[in-house]
Design a protein around this nucleic acid. Structure first.
Length: 468
RNA sequence: GGCGCUGUACCCAAGUGGCUUAAGGGGAAGGUCUGCAAAACCUUUAUUCGUCGGUUCGAAUCCGACCGGCGCCUCCA
């Protein structure tokens, strides 16, 4: 298995430090608003990567943080005249609801920044002791000039960045590129006691502190959106490696952006659609398939037409899944066991997924599988139940467990709901027959339903039923 | 300006030296099945991979130049 590592800018064989365990950290949401469909891409692709590692037999410790103290949360709390934690709790809950709807597997741990302030303070103290952090009147900054490798992830160097002049001017900083580890409290902001006085942590320090607490000082995989490469991940490296003195992350994996009208979808541009909104019109499966049909690292343009096309693809999978379920119920033990090389599809699926998570190709394998299966079904009179069990197994292990683009359990739920509707439909038709005094056919319907376990009871002006 | 990604059919999108005279999904056209419809299956839909040169027995795939799109360099998945 190999992945494109942003750090080396090349595909690298994946060898975790302590197999079969894999430590995997991914940057989660800042909970100041509902997350948008572009954020959803990162969350879903991280989810699929995690699921695939599990498919391969790894034991994945998957950590996704929630940033619940931040300028934007504070701004919103002021605008809405609510305490900061009320805002962050509200959107944290919304986040959990939305990832659940998107069928994203919950992380092993969802650490929150506000619950790790003491760890962050401890880490900042270490950085101070090592002479890479400095305190200016209660604000603590990281001194990037003290970290010789600064810029190694993003391929930038300090001179060029300084020349860029887009960096915020702050008289307190020695160097414009230095970033805040600890921010002095302002009136009305959430704050914590610290060796530097009351204040709150800077943004970057939380990921360094929480990842080392939950996953150790060197982690196998760290993932996130492309825009986090600089400065966020660069700063995480600077903090963690200066504090711990060894490598922070083995494999850096970054997800491409979702564009809308060929332009990046982002909160700051205001051109975003929330995942929540889109889920009202399209299934989670369609959204997931839409993302999976393109390589995770590249850009992807969003449109409802493309989502509708993905929804059709999902229908295709579902149609076969429903066929499989009904055939398994029939439990045919005498039919033909066709010559179907199912192992080929497993091998292909793994082969392409092992090569930097080629999900588009893997989708092609699944659709090839579906076409072959359908072909056999359409050409064969009666098929042995074992064939359908094999089909279900493959789809469950790949399309369901790794991709989350089909959910067999939900087919059952749907059919349970349908049962009631169907019986009522039959009762309505039978009522018409009774009115037409076609009692022969009406009685025959009652008898036949009785035989399959449904008892009809004709009341004065309505008919009820129960399962025997 | 620096760094990174990217240009493949009507749309989306894999493939990065011979297995591919280019996967898969959607769309369109025709057919099989069918009382009708749906589903499913079959056939067709890129002699061609932004443009122009070069390397090679062989290139979408490597090299060079040019043209275009996007992102990061400031909070952002």
């Amino acid at each position: 298995m190999r992945f494109y590592n942003t750090f080396s800018k090349s595909k690298e064989e994946f060898i975790p430090q302590n197999p079969p365990t894999v430590s995997f950290y991914t940057c989660g949401p800042t909970v100041y608003d509902y997350f948008h469909i572009g954020n959803a891409r990162s969350f879903i692709m991280a989810d699929v990567l995690r699921r695939y590692l599990e498919y391969k037999g790894f034991k994945v410790k998957f950590v996704m943080n929630l940033t619940d103290v931040d300028d934007r949360i504070i701004k919103k709390s002021i605008d809405e005249k609510k305490p900061s934690h009320v805002v962050s709790d509200f959107y944290a809950n919304a986040f959990f609801e939305d990832i659940n709807l998107l069928k994203i597997k919950p992380a092993t741990v969802f650490p929150k920044a506000t619950q790790h302030v003491s760890e962050m303070i401890e880490m900042i103290r270490e950085l101070e002791e090592r002479g890479v952090a400095y305190n200016v009147d209660g604000n603590v900054f990281y001194d990037v000039s003290k970290f010789t490798d600064y810029g190694k992830l993003s391929g930038k160097n300090i001179e060029e960045l300084s020349a860029g002049a887009r960096v915020e001017v702050n008289d307190n900083k020695k160097n414009p590129l230095d970033f805040a580890l600890w921010k002095k409290a302002k009136e009305g902001e959430p704050s914590w006691d610290s060796p530097w006085g009351k204040g709150r942590p800077g943004w970057h320090i939380e990921c360094s502190a929480m990842s080392s607490k939950h996953l150790g000082e060197t982690i196998d995989i760290h993932a996130g959106g492309n825009d986090l490469i600089f400065p966020h991940h660069e700063n995480e490296i600077a903090q963690s490696e200066a504090a711990h003195n060894h490598k922070f992350v083995k494999y850096w994996i970054h997800f491409g952006f979702l564009n809308i009208n060929e332009e990046k979808m982002s909160k700051s541009l205001g051109n975003f659609l929330t995942a929540r909104e889109i889920l009202k019109k399209y299934s989670a499966e369609a959204i997931r398939l839409f993302f999976l049909q393109t390589y995770y690292g590249g850009p992807l343009n969003f449109s409802f037409n493309l989502l509708a096309a993905a929804e059709k693809g999902v229908e295709k999978i579902k149609n076969l899944a429903e066929k499989i379920e009904s055939e398994i119920k029939k439990d045919d033990n005498i039919g033909l066991v066709p010559d179907f090389n199912i192992k080929y599809y497993y091998d292909e699926f793994e082969k392409v997924m092992d090569d930097d998570l080629n999900t588009p190709q893997a989708c092609a394998v699944i659709f090839d599988f579906i076409r072959s299966a359908n072909k056999i079904i359409s050409e064969t009179e009666s098929l042995h139940v074992s064939f359908f069990i094999d089909l279900k197994k493959f789809l469950t292990e790949t399309a369901e467990n790794v991709f989350g683009i089909i959910h067999f359990e939900e087919l059952y739920k749907k059919s349970a709901q349908l049962d009631g509707k169907l019986i009522n439909l039959i009762i309505d038709l039978r009522t018409k027959l009774k009115k037409e005094k076609n009692f022969l056919l009406a009685d025959s319907i009652r008898d036949e339903l009785n035989k399959i376990g449904i008892e009809l009871k004709d009341g004065k002006d309505s008919t009820t039923y129960k399962f025997k």
